[in-house]
């Protein structure tokens, strides 16, 4: 029987397909198989030997069935593996093509600015692009004949109406809409218009983002804090802020906002003209008369305002050196901004 066991196991291992294995199974375990045949000889044994013989045959039968089952698993696995191999695809071929669009770099930049300032409590107020002389100038302390009008070449529509030259009239409209409620904290993004011929850094239509904060305790110090956070987050690097005294009739004190150059980190390069600084905004404390014009009492509240050139920020962030690219709408240019 031991000799038989060795033979059977040998045949099980040698079976290389499910059919061959079935053949082995029938040959030994089938009703007429060789193991069943062993029992036919049991009558020839002495009665006291019979139980032991029966147990040995059963043990052999069990062992063989186990072996067959395990060999079957093995053969099934092999067959599956082979069939999977046959189904294999060339994963290096290109995937299905989806044409993805994208947002304009100005929109992307504005969204980031909006999101950063949102975290500091600023809401968004959209103001009109055609304006009255009164709102664009007079209410901002720039009376008729004021030399500051030279700073902003204006497209007039009529004697008294014009294309806004800055987003600052949005300060007045936004304040009036709030009817004296505090705190005032909003930004005014949008197009502005200047009578400047187009070149690499000028376009008659461009974008600004105005910011205004008014409360019982708003200070110049806070202005620096807000601008600093905005610039650091927007450029994703440590940016030094430098405030230079300047003049805007609607703020006092007024300043220009310089940031350490985001290309050379202040070392000096061609973008910053070697100075290590880039001018990015005008800002200041809201002039008392402007607060009054917006319906707020300068004896009770104070405020700051800032105005960033959105085009300039987008150009610095994305390394664009010619403003005309922003308005050229070339697919090859716009497609570059589909990513983050």
């Amino acid at each position: 029987m031991a000799e038989m066991e060795v033979r059977i196991l040998q045949q099980i291992i040698e079976a290389s397909t499910a059919g061959e294995l079935e053949h082995v199974r029938i040959k030994y375990l089938g009703r007429k198989g060789e193991i069943s045949a062993l029992l036919k000889n049991i009558g020839n044994l002495a009665p006291e030997q019979r139980p032991a013989f029966g147990a040995a045959v059963n043990a052999l039968r069990n062992k063989v069935s186990e072996m067959i089952a395990s060999r079957k698993d093995e053969l099934d696995r092999e067959a599956l593996e082979q069939s999977l191999l046959r189904d294999a695809i060339d994963v290096s071929l290109p995937g299905e093509y989806f044409e993805v669009g994208g947002l304009h770099p100005l929109t992307k930049s504005l969204r980031e600015i909006t999101s950063i300032l949102s975290g500091m409590g600023f809401t968004v107020y959209e103001s009109r692009e055609t304006e009255t002389d009164e709102m664009n100038f007079v209410k901002l302390n720039i009376a008729q004949g004021h030399p500051a009008r030279d700073m902003q070449e204006t497209f007039y529509l009529t004697e008294t109406t014009l294309m806004r030259t800055h987003t600052s009239p949005g300060q007045i409209r936004g304040m009036l809409a709030l009817e004296g409620r505090l705190p005032v904290r909003f930004i005014v993004p949008g197009r502005v218009y200047r009578r400047d011929p187009t070149d690499a850094s000028h376009h008659p239509v461009f974008f600004q983002v105005e910011g205004l904060a008014i409360d019982v305790d708003v200070t110049f110090k806070q202005l620096r804090g807000v601008i600093s956070t905005l610039m650091n987050r927007f450029f994703g690097q440590d940016v030094r802020i430098r405030l230079r005294p300047s003049y805007f009739p609607f703020t006092e004190p007024s300043c220009e906002v310089d940031i350490s150059c985001v290309f050379c980190r202040g070392e000096g390069c061609s973008v910053c003209g070697g100075s290590g600084y880039l001018e990015v905004a005008g800002a200041g404390m809201v002039h008392p008369q402007v607060l009054l014009n917006g319906g707020y009492d300068p004896d009770k509240v104070s405020g700051f305002a800032f105005g960033f050139g959105l085009d300039r920020l987008a150009m610095l962030k994305y390394g664009i050196d010619d403003i005309r690219l922003l308005y050229g709408n070339d697919k090859r240019f716009l497609s570059q901004f589909r990513g983050l």
């Binding site: 909006t114 500091m120 409590g121 409360d215 620096r224 006092e252 004190p253 007024s254 002039h287 008392p288």
Partner: peptide, 30 residues
Amino acid sequence: VDLVEEVARHYGYDNLGTGDLSRAVPGGIT
């Protein structure tokens, strides 16, 4: 306010320090 600017610019804008808006209010597109 014009005198405040005179004082500030001769003191140095960059020597005035930095701060945060004091009142926390929700922002964003409303």
